[in-house]
């Protein structure tokens, strides 16, 4: 998945708005599950082979942005490079009730915008959609603690038995030094 994807031919298709509408509804539903802390419900939206990735970003000099601005999936240290097993562990940890960084639970509001379907293809009979969106995640804890995470997301959604699920999610947070003490929330 590259950061910048070419303008979608898909957009000229008469069915595009209907498809995008369906994807938007899916992403809004996902945000609702997380905001209302239905973490297990959220896990159900993830394919078993999901790759959930948030690179570390570097300051690099002009000309090196393409190759060197971010750590690479499966190759370097990142903020997240997760599969379903460890994402499930993260949910289990919150549900222990003694995960102190989430006790009391964060109060979160997710705003999803700029949703576009950039590619659709049939992969061995399974429909896969490339989707990009922006997420503004507001997190509040205890009294005065609040953090905003504005991120770009590049997803691959897969349709199985009619329902969409997330097969791949790349999250870009535009900070070289993470300006938050923790990443206990899901993007």
């Amino acid at each position: 998945m590259s950061d910048v994807q070419t303008a979608p031919k898909l957009r000229h298709s008469p069915d595009y708005l209907a498809l995008r509408g369906e994807v938007e509804e899916f992403l809004y539903d996902e945000a609702e599950l997380l905001d209302t802390r239905d973490f297990n419900g959220w896990l159900d939206l993830l394919e078993d082979d999901i790759r959930y990735f948030m690179p570390i970003t570097f300051n690099v000099k002009f000309g090196e942005h393409g190759a060197g601005e971010r750590t690479r999936v499966e190759e370097d240290m990142s903020w997240f490079n997760e599969g379903k097993w460890s994402l499930t562990k993260r949910v289990e940890q919150i549900l222990t009730g003694v995960h102190w960084a989430e006790e009391p639970l964060s109060r979160c509001t997710r705003m999803v915008t700029n949703v576009q379907v950039t590619h659709a293809e049939d992969k061995n009979g399974v429909e896969e959609l490339s989707v990009r969106s922006r997420l503004l995640l507001y997190q509040n804890r205890c009294e005065y603690e609040q953090t905003y995470f504005p991120v770009r997301r590049y997803d691959t959604l897969r349709r199985a038995n009619g329902a969409l699920r997330i097969a791949e999610r790349k999250i870009i947070l535009e900070q070289t030094v993470l300006l938050a003490k923790n990443l206990t929330v899901f993007f």
Binding site: W79, T176, L178
Partner: peptide, 11 residues
């Protein structure tokens, strides 16, 4: 050292 020094702010 693996590429990707994690840097973050702690209050």
């Amino acid at each position: 050292v693996l590429l990707g020094v994690q840097k973050w702010i702690i209050p």
